[in-house]
Computed example of a mutant assay.
Amino acid sequence: MNWDDLRIFLATARAESLTAARGSLRMDPATIARRVARLEASAGTALFLKSPQGYRLTEAGLRLLTHAEEAEAALSRGIGALTGSAEQLSGAIRIGAPDGCATYLLPQVCARIAEKHPGLDLQILALPRIVNLSRREADLAITVSRPKTDRLEGERLSDYKLSLAASKDWLARNGTPQSLSDLKNLRMIGYIPDMIFDAELDYLSTLGVDRVPLASTSVSVQLEMARAGGGLAVVHDFALPAAPELQRVLPDAVALTRTFWLTTHAGPKDARLERITGLLRDGIRAEIARLEAKTAPPQAAATVPRQR
């Protein structure tokens, strides 16, 4: 088994299909299939479960994956040490993120990184659920909770703030609530209750709200509903600069804080992924600080206790 075999194995495992692996390997699917079959014959065991839906790793494949990634990381470090090529980054990196982060933070951050590293392909996977790194949906993920499996590791990325807000037109028509108890009689915008994929996103129950007349799995859709005068919504402070129609409501009673985590596979990482992780970390922290400063309330508000 040589490095070229491992390179094809890694690309197929990460893409989970021959067609998807074609781009990074620059081979046609039939050639990749033959190389994978040859590798399996050499290993004396099946490394993939093959179906019309794609290629999924077997238990043997998962065991090989760990060692193949360690070999990839060691090779990357060695090449960097010999060539001094630490400055320019290249290749594809897929970043999984909740859609609020993917919509209002990552575009600016990725654009700045791409400007400095034109050979780098940055892909943002925005989903209304937890991105499955174990299934290789992405190379790294930004999550709203710390990972709970030993196969993943999480680094605290940044706290971010959320506020209750409504459009100025809606407030003019319906009046401004004076207390949290008023929210029960007003139209609320939020997540579809039975599709909340992380307890950290269950903002409205924290505020004592049990009915959500306007709901979506998407943060950006919720924000647009509020901008359109649909009702009251809990919105990210870093998204408020993109919604000048919105006005904070009950700022002294509602000031939520949550945390983004930078989640990666546990174990050794190649030098390229380490550098990209560092660029994302610095960029997101700076972007949150920049955007939140634009709409910061005149004084700190009392926080509503977080539910765990």
Rank of each mutant, 00 (worst) to 15 (best):
I113F: 04
L39T: 02
K294N: 05
R38W: 03
A253P: 00
R187T: 15
L57Q: 05
R94N: 02
G96C: 04
A242T: 02
I113T: 05
I130V: 13
H236P: 00
L122K: 06
P128N: 09
R112P: 00
A300I: 09
H67G: 01
A243K: 02
R151H: 11
M225S: 00
A286T: 09
F197E: 06
V131T: 14
P213S: 09
E292R: 10
E274T: 13
L47F: 07
Q299F: 14
G283K: 04
G230E: 06
R63L: 12
L140H: 05
R35C: 06
D194S: 12
A30I: 10
R146S: 15
S85D: 14
G23S: 13
R258I: 01
R211V: 10
A138H: 05
A243L: 09
H236A: 11
P107M: 11
T103F: 08
S220I: 06
T19S: 14
S51I: 02
W261Q: 05
P128H: 08
R187S: 14
E224Q: 13
A226D: 06
D182M: 04
R38V: 04
I288T: 02
A228D: 09
S181N: 14
E274S: 13
G175D: 05
D252Q: 13
T206A: 11
A68R: 02
A301F: 01
R22I: 01
A46T: 10
L162R: 08
L6M: 12
R227K: 13
L127M: 14
L157M: 11
V109N: 01
R129G: 07
D237T: 05
Q108H: 13
T295K: 07
P213I: 06
K148M: 10
A15H: 02
M1R: 12
D270N: 12
Y191E: 02
T19K: 11
L273C: 07
R211S: 14
P128I: 01
F197C: 08
L106S: 04
A233T: 11
E16T: 14
G190V: 05
V219G: 02
L164N: 03
D282C: 03
P98G: 09
T12C: 15
A271N: 11
S85A: 11
E70S: 10
L122E: 05
R187Q: 12
R112K: 12
A20R: 15
F48S: 02
P98F: 03
L64P: 01
M1N: 09
I192L: 15
D198I: 00
R248F: 03
L122C: 08
L105R: 01
R151D: 13
I284P: 00
D282A: 10
A166H: 05
G96I: 03
E16P: 00
L162M: 10
V109I: 11
L256Q: 00
G278F: 03
D182S: 07
A13N: 03
W170D: 02
A293L: 07
L64C: 07
I284C: 03
A46Q: 15
D210C: 08
M195Q: 15
D139N: 13
H67D: 11
K116T: 12
A271H: 14
